[in-house]
């Protein structure tokens, strides 16, 4: 089992009800899972908890055999560095680094930079010739391709994607999603995808819906 979310609850300070309430979810290597739900339903929160970005109040999350509740800040950072990769709606590239530097950054942090693999990703994502540019000089679609490339260049065991096509037009979004699914399949990583779109959710092997903090 790669990811085991077991009876997890989470309440934000000042909120009158929990954003997540007894959520249970399991994900194996190679699985693709789409999580849908209304705005404020807790989708992104669950994704952040699965990626060891935030802390939960109750239950347990086990990632690659490690219980997250027992990890301190350094342990959680190590896990994010070596096991998990993230793709966000806002791209969140490193503005100071060029496209090539962004592509290789996470892989180099994880100590798994493979120039041949990064070259292949760059070509597959249609980023050849853009390597020396800075993110601000790219279109939204190009930036999201770089974000996907950065995530997959380190060969993660789990890829977490939060509305990865939310800032793109329909055609570009579909194209970017296809590329991401292909590359995920190539690496054998598991994909946990959060989206509003039923069409995008339909591309994943499994689909879950979150409503008022509970999975349905």
């Amino acid at each position: 089992m790669l990811l085991d979310i077991d009876d997890v609850t989470k309440t934000y300070p000042g909120a009158d009800r929990p954003v997540l309430n007894g959520v249970r979810l399991r994900l194996d290597q190679g699985d693709t899972l789409a999580l849908t739900g209304e705005s404020g339903s807790g989708k992104s929160t669950l994704l952040h908890l699965a990626g060891a970005l935030d802390r939960f109040d109750g239950g347990e999350i086990t990632l690659d055999g490690t219980a997250l509740s027992r990890l301190d800040d350094t342990g959680r950072a190590r896990l994010r560095r070596r096991t998990v990769a993230l793709v966000f709606q806002q791209f969140n590239l490193m503005p100071a680094l060029t496209v090539d530097q962004n592509l290789a950054f996470h892989a180099r942090l994880a100590g798994r930079a493979d120039p041949a693999w990064i070259d292949r990703i760059r070509t597959r994502l249609g980023l050849d010739g853009l390597g020396a540019r800075y993110p601000e000089a790219l279109s939204g679609g190009q930036q999201q391709r770089v974000a996907i490339g950065r995530a997959l260049a380190m060969r993660p065991r789990l890829l977490l994607a939060d509305e990865p096509t939310g800032n793109l037009d329909e055609d570009t979004g579909a194209e970017v999603l296809s590329l991401m699914l292909d590359l995920v399949a190539d690496t054998g990583a598991a994909l946990f995808l959060v989206t509003h779109s039923d069409a995008i959710a339909a591309r994943a092997a499994r689909r879950l819906h979150l409503h008022h903090g509970r999975l349905t």
Binding site: D73, T74, R81, L93, H106, L109
Partner: peptide, 15 residues
């Protein structure tokens, strides 16, 4: 903060 958060998400601790 938006420039540092991605580095943190990729495994560089806050410290």
């Amino acid at each position: 903060l938006p420039q540092l958060a991605p580095a943190w998400a990729m495994g560089i601790t806050r410290a």
